[in-house]
Each structure stands twice: as C-alpha cells, then as structure tokens.
C-alpha cells in the first residue's frame, strides 16, 4: 500500500535563461488537502502544469499517481482531475451534457455515466437543473458543478487552480465543504489559492517564492515557526523577500 500520490524531487523548469521553477521537492499523501501558495510569477502555475503532464520538466523528477511526469504524461492525465480558475464548463451546454462530455473524454462508459450523473446531481441538489443551460446558473453553482465534474471520473488527485476566485465568502465556504467530502472519499486535493483564509483549511501548505518552496508545513506549524497570527502574516514575511515582480 503506497500512500504517497505525489512525489517531487528537484523539479526544475527553465525557459531560456529564466528559471521559473527551481528545484522544488515535496510529497503529498493520499486524501490530503495540499495548499500550494505563492505570489503571481512565483512559479506555481508552471509547477502545476508539470505535475499535470502538460509541461515537460527541464530537470528533476516527479511521480504523480504512480507515473513519471516526463515519460508517462498520458497515463497521468487519465488519473487526475483539473479545475481551472477560469470557469471551465460550457455555458451553451446543459448541466447533464457537460457531465456527459467530460465523462466521455475521460473514457467512462455510457451506463456508468448515466447512473453516476443521477447520484451527483442529487448530492449537489441539482435535480431540477439537469436541463438548464450552465450559462444560466449563478456563479457559485457553476463552481460547485465544475468541481463535481472534475472529480466525476473518480481521479486519484484533483488539481484546483484558484478555484474560488470571484466567488463570495459564503459560497466559498460551501465549496470547501465539497472539497472536504472529496478528500474524505480518498481523492487527494492539490489546490492553489489567493485567499489566505482558505490556506487555513488545508492539511498542509507550501509557499513558493521566486521558483523555490520557502516553507512547507501544517498551517499551525507555519504560524508557530514565523510567529504570525495567520497564514497571511507568514506569506507576507516570505513574499517580502521576493526578487521577481508581478507577472
């Protein structure tokens, strides 16, 4: 029984002379909620792209869901889910059509899709929205649906790239309940966020500065080590050292 689903060592990505990700290393356990923090331009998006198998590392290695990102990126793609900061469902398609599309892309069979769609719609309380166009739903609902779709094919890991940007605080709290439920069912959650209060919800948090991981611990551990009131305080102390600008 291997309980590590992400294993990263010396992972590096260079674009010409610019080192976007500079030898990062960490591991994430099954069912863990792993917060991946960093200012804009710190390299978190690049790092996440490598873990998702859509960007090749320049050096170092990373094993995701048991597959090496350099050599078996296609296998990785089948075992992960992904939700981007931009709302990523199709507004012109109905709720069930979006579900069927993504489930189909992940290779699920029709009868399997049909049965699971019922369960998911029920758990979201979306039974009456089955035939609504996704574009007509309120943003918070879209977000919930997008997350449900990203884990519909039961991936080992789900990558969330700033999933709650633009959502109001109460909707964000409900969204995190969904994340907890997914983690309880054994799905590892790898999440980047701008909201420091959300970092408190994670099991462990890493903070990237200028392509390196400057801190990695539980939220409580980080606060203790930096003598800060909250994660924002920790982040602020670290981000001050950054050499790189925004962007």
């Amino acid at each position: 029984m291997n309980d590590t689903v992400i294993e990263v060592e010396g992972l590096t990505k260079r674009f010409g002379s610019f080192t976007a990700v500079d030898g990062i290393g960490f591991s994430v356990a099954r069912g863990e909620i792993f917060g991946f923090l960093g200012a804009n331009g710190a390299g978190k998006t690049t790092a996440m792209k490598m873990l998702c198998g859509i960007s090749r590392p320049t050096a170092g290695r990373a094993v995701v869901a048991g597959f090496d990102v350099g050599r078996h990126s296609e296998q990785i793609k089948r075992h992960i889910g992904y939700m981007s900061q931009k709302f990523s469902l199709y507004g012109e398609l109905k709720v069930w059509e979006n579900i069927r599309l993504y489930a189909g892309i992940y290779g699920m069979k029709s009868d399997e899709i049909a049965a699971k769609t019922e369960r998911v719609l029920a758990s979201l309380g979306f039974e009456n929205e089955r035939n609504s166009l996704v574009g007509s739903l309120p943003l918070g609902w879209k977000q919930k649906l997008a997350f449900a779709v990203s884990i519909f094919h039961n991936p080992q890991i789900v990558f969330l790239d700033e999933p709650t940007s633009g959502v109001d605080p109460s909707a964000r709290r409900r969204f995190w309940e969904q994340i907890y439920a997914a983690a309880d069912s054994g799905i590892t959650v790898f999440v980047t966020t701008h909201y420091m209060d959300e970092a408190e919800y994670c099991d462990r948090v890493s903070i990237m500065v200028d392509g390196r991981i400057e801190a990695l611990d539980t939220p409580a551990g980080l606060k203790e080590r930096f003598g800060a009131e909250d994660i924002y305080g920790v982040f602020h102390q670290l981000a001050r050292k950054a050499q790189r600008g925004e962007g």
Binding site: E74, K77, R78, S84, K86, S88, Y102, I105, Y106
Partner: peptide, 13 residues
Amino acid sequence: ERGTMEVLLVSPM
C-alpha cells in the same frame, strides 16, 4: 479565451 482549452489539454484527449 474561456479557459476550457486548458481543461481539455489536461484531459486525456
């Protein structure tokens, strides 16, 4: 533009 391409690129398609 809408960001769905990103999700498709991460998918096994």
